[in-house]
């Protein structure tokens, strides 16, 4: 293994990770600078239950009409995100736990996940380019992020045999692209996972407080502080 590849797999990745961590930390500070109003009503439902329901939405394809009526899209979402997780995991396994990839079937599973994610990405790209509605709402970042992910996933598939002896090109490409990804992500839409918990928690907390989430049958005391014998 060349020194260049070793540096790419280690120092470059760690530097990129540190940079991403720093930007995310700044981003969190930025988010927390915005104020949150105080709730002044008495809860009908439980905020925790609403928040939980909201966060679990990701694993409940039946909960929203928009996913329920498009199971294919939900599958695409799952495949894309699992594949990305596999590729990220691979970028750690290769330098720090290469033993795992000596087993052929483990390698095979990872490659299959990553390849499937690449295909899901291609399907999304095709839709974004051909659907006039999606085109109208897309920014250059939306296109670039998707194209970049597809290329990076493809590099992942090629790099995964993890045999530097057979040529370091694919591994250099994969780790180079991974480093770029880590640096670029906080500035792009790909960083949405950082906001996901926030948006879902705030929505879930409000709707949980009001007893709207999780959707349930009628409540017996649904009006705030209970008073005996009233009305």
């Amino acid at each position: 293994m060349s020194n260049l590849l070793r540096t790419f797999e280690n120092e470059v990745q760690l530097a990129a990770l540190a940079f991403m961590g720093l930007v995310y930390a700044l981003r969190l500070v930025w988010i927390f600078r915005f104020r949150v109003g105080r709730e002044r009503t008495v809860a009908v439902g439980r905020e925790g239950a609403g928040t939980g329901y909201s966060l679990m939405n990701i694993a409940m394809p039946w909960a929203m009409e928009s996913t329920r009526t498009h199971p294919g899209r939900y599958l695409e979402f799952v495949v894309l995100h699992l594949g990305i997780a596999a590729a990220i995991a691979a970028s750690f396994i290769i330098p720090y736990g290469p033993g795992l990839f000596e087993t052929a079937w483990v390698r095979g599973i990872f490659r299959a996940f990553i390849a499937a994610a690449g295909l899901a990405g291609l399907a999304r790209l095709a839709r974004r380019l051909t659907n006039p509605v999606l085109r109208e709402i897309s920014s250059p970042d939306d296109y670039f992020s998707l194209v970049f992910l597809i290329v990076w996933l493809a590099a992942g598939v090629l790099a995964l045999p993890d045999r530097p002896a057979a040529g370091e090109g694919p591994l250099l490409a994969f780790f180079g692209l991974t480093a770029f990804l880590l640096v670029y992500v906080p500035f792009s839409k790909i960083g949405h996972y950082l906001y996901y918990p926030f948006s879902r928690i705030y929505l879930g907390r409000t709707l949980g407080h009001r007893g709207a989430w999780p959707p349930a049958a009628a409540k017996s005391a649904g009006a705030g502080p209970a008073r005996k014998g009233a009305a």
Binding site: I31, F32, F34, R35, V36, G37, E65, S66, T67, T69, H70, R73, N131, V133, L134, I137, S138, S139, D142, K189, H192, Y195, Y196, F198, S199, Y202, L203, T206
Partner: peptide
């Protein structure tokens, strides 16, 4: 005026378009 719930709603959109049909 922007509050935290608003700020995250403004930042979190990924332009997936799933809202259109709703």
């Amino acid at each position: 005026r922007v509050s935290r719930p608003l700020a995250v709603s403004l930042t979190a959109c990924v332009h997936c378009g799933r809202c259109a049909e709703s």
